[in-house]
């Protein structure tokens, strides 16, 4: 029972990401309105960021800004990766 709980909590982020992703996907394929389609893409895109950043998180870690008193930093590369595409949709 404890194992199941642990598994559910460990994968909870990914599952919500998939639900969000599918919400966006549904909006894109089922709605004819173009504004709605773009918003669907937006939801889809944000869900991908959440997926990346959830994977980058380390338990007990902190933001990857080198400072005294911090020893564990979450993955900086993924953040750099994720903050690049955010910028495109506006354009």
């Amino acid at each position: 029972m404890h194992d199941v709980m642990h598994g559910v909590l460990g994968l909870y982020n990914y599952w919500i990401v998939i639900i969000l992703m599918m919400t966006g996907f549904y909006t894109v394929i089922a709605r004819p309105n173009l504004v709605k389609k773009i918003i669907g893409l937006f939801i889809f895109q944000t869900s991908v960021f959440i997926l990346f950043i959830s994977m980058a998180k380390i338990e007990g870690g902190t933001a990857p800004i080198i400072s005294e008193g911090a020893r564990i930093y979450s993955n900086p590369l993924v953040k750099a990766l994720a903050s690049t595409p955010i910028r495109y949709p506006t354009s």
Binding site: T46, I53, S54, A63, A82, I86
Partner: peptide
Amino acid sequence: SASLFVVLDAVDVALTEAAI
């Protein structure tokens, strides 16, 4: 989602998401 990024230690992404 910007607030979520702060919780997940991605402060730069959070700032971008909030602004954009």
